[in-house]
Nucleic acid binder design. Structure first.
Lengths: 164, 164
DNA sequence: TATTGTTATACTCTATAACTATA
DNA sequence: TATAGTTATAGAGTATAACAATA
């Protein structure tokens, strides 16, 4: 069962468009990152660790809206690949400070390049005006909503791409 | 744990933006459709049935990229709500023709209005130029990709919105 | 033999609850 | 008592495999 072009009743639905655009990007992201041995969510963790110092597992989880129990397995995986290291915080021995290893920093750089390249390809069918517009529009659509009632499980997962 | 504004490292990532825009829309879609007793995927099924005649379960499933085993439960649910009816095709007794009931047709109309209203609200933060641009851009980004290797499980689920 | 619908089963992903060690 | 990390468990959602009826 190969994928057909979107049937007419659906191609006018914003939900259909957003979902399938996202799925396509996730697919491309997975393909682009596979050679680097990480997925989009792991890359996001590396990027967050690179951007801030001395983050605990819980802080990283909060930043990415990932559950703390999920974060355990994520950090396990990254530690197995020797891209990050856990160490106890001397100030609060309950906390695990997660740090990039030199190898992790290198991997981050390489994978970020692949991600940017992937994103460029993804946006290639658009004119530069359209590309700029869609990014700007998505920024305001993705921003935090009216004070959500439920915590909501919106996370990061297999996707990522800096925008120029 | 309430949702914070997107941290800087993430707000420049297309994957993050697409995913969270989609999640927000799915949330709004669920809220808008709840009073009508259906979800976005069920609405999509009703819309497809309304647009074409004499569709079998498998054909509906194919149109929406939904697995045929998933479609069974979906049609079960819609039949329980008396919005659709199954009947054996006289031409091929293996096939279940799925038909809208009058009640289903009415529900479709009401829910479509709610969905359009929801979508209007969702796009409200954008200028009309931006809104038009983002829709046009998403159309080309969501279109079928290079002949996919794997069938891919991209489906429809909780979202939907006609675009003017 | 292939196709449609169906059921039962397995798998993936994530959340929930309970435990420990620290504070 | 509350918090960070961990583990085990459960749940939602979907795919896979097998089967009956029909072609």
């Amino acid at each position: 069962m190969t994928r057909d072009a979107p049937p007419e009743v659906l191609s006018s639905r914003l939900g259909y468009l957003l979902k399938h655009a996202y799925l396509r990007l996730a697919e491309e992201s997975a393909r682009a990152l596979a050679p680097h041995g990480i997925d989009g969510r792991e890359l996001a963790v590396l990027a967050v660790l690179n951007a801030h110092d001395e983050l605990s597992q819980l802080e990283v989880a909060g930043t990415l809206s990932i559950d703390r129990t999920t974060m355990v397995a994520l950090v396990d995986a990254l530690e197995d690949k020797q891209l990050v290291e856990r160490r106890r915080s001397p100030h609060d021995r309950r906390k695990n400070i997660v740090q990039l290893t030199p190898s992790g920093r290198q991997r981050l750089q390489d994978a970020e390049l692949a991600r940017q390249e992937m994103e460029r390809r993804f946006l290639a069918p658009l004119s530069s005006t359209e590309a700029a517009c869609v990014v700007r529009a998505l920024r305001s659509l993705a921003g935090d909503p009216t004070p959500a009632k439920k915590p909501d499980r919106g996370s990061v997962d297999a996707a990522g791409a800096t925008v120029r």
